[in-house]
Simulated assay, not measured.
Amino acid sequence: MARIADSKHAASALSARDIANAVAKHKSIFFRVKASDGALIDYSAATNGALKLIPGAKGMQALREDYDAMLDAGLLPWGAPSFDEPMRQCLQLENQAKASLA
């Protein structure tokens, strides 16, 4: 997501509503996942203004620890950005997606 947010394709990806709706429908059938509260994730809500790419504090800490562990283990390429950079890009994409619906 961070790479899309930082590319020239972000605007066209965000405006492709038909593709977003098709992906949401597909995911709701084949990739039913529960949120941390146990409720099924409503993918169609994400296409209608409720997109959430950045987790809450607990999820953010878990992601940060995982990212740092991958950096330490050499699983990410040399020169990979700090955790905060892709999170900033994802937040930017989340905000752009919501603004595109306004």
Rank of each mutant, 00 (worst) to 15 (best):
A35M: 13
A73D: 15
N48Q: 15
R32P: 02
A35I: 01
Q92A: 13
T47Q: 00
M1K: 06
K98A: 06
L91V: 00
D84M: 09
L63M: 13
A35P: 01
A69K: 15
A73H: 06
H9P: 01
L93K: 00
I29W: 00
G49I: 03
S100C: 03
L53C: 06
F30L: 11
L75K: 13
L53N: 03
Y67R: 02
A24R: 00
G56L: 00
L93N: 05
D66P: 02
L75Y: 08
E65K: 11
I19M: 11
K34Q: 15
A10I: 07
M1Y: 07
D68P: 00
Q96V: 00
F83H: 08
A24N: 02
D72I: 08
G74F: 09
P55L: 07
Q92W: 06
R64A: 10
W78Y: 11
A39Y: 10
A2V: 02
L75V: 04
A57M: 12
L71C: 07
I54D: 04
S100Y: 10
I4H: 01
N21D: 15
K58Q: 12
L101D: 03
L63Q: 12
D84L: 11
P81N: 15
G79V: 12
K27P: 00
D68K: 14
D84V: 12
I29F: 03
L53S: 03
V23F: 05
S15T: 13
A57L: 07
W78N: 13
I4M: 08
A11F: 05
A24H: 03
G49S: 08
L76V: 08
A69W: 02
A69D: 14
D66N: 13
Q61R: 13
I41W: 04
G59W: 01
A10W: 03
S44A: 14
D42F: 01
L93W: 00
G59M: 05
I54W: 06
A73L: 09
P86E: 06
A11S: 13
A57Q: 09
A97T: 04
N21K: 09
P55Q: 03
F31R: 07
A2Y: 01
L75I: 00
R64I: 01
H9V: 01
H9K: 08
L93R: 05
V33S: 11
S12D: 15
K25R: 09
L76K: 06
D84K: 14
M87K: 03
E65Q: 11
M70K: 14
E85D: 10
A22P: 02
P55V: 05
Q89E: 12
M87S: 05
R64E: 11
Q96A: 15
M87W: 03
L51D: 04
G49N: 02
I4V: 13
A13L: 11
A69Y: 07
S82C: 03
W78A: 15
D66M: 09
M60H: 11
L75G: 15
P86T: 08
A62V: 11
E94W: 05
D68Q: 12
A46T: 02
S15I: 04
Y43S: 00
S12K: 12
A39V: 09
E65I: 10
A102I: 11
N21H: 07
Y43R: 01
A11V: 10
L91T: 02
Q92M: 11
L51W: 07
P81D: 13
G56E: 14
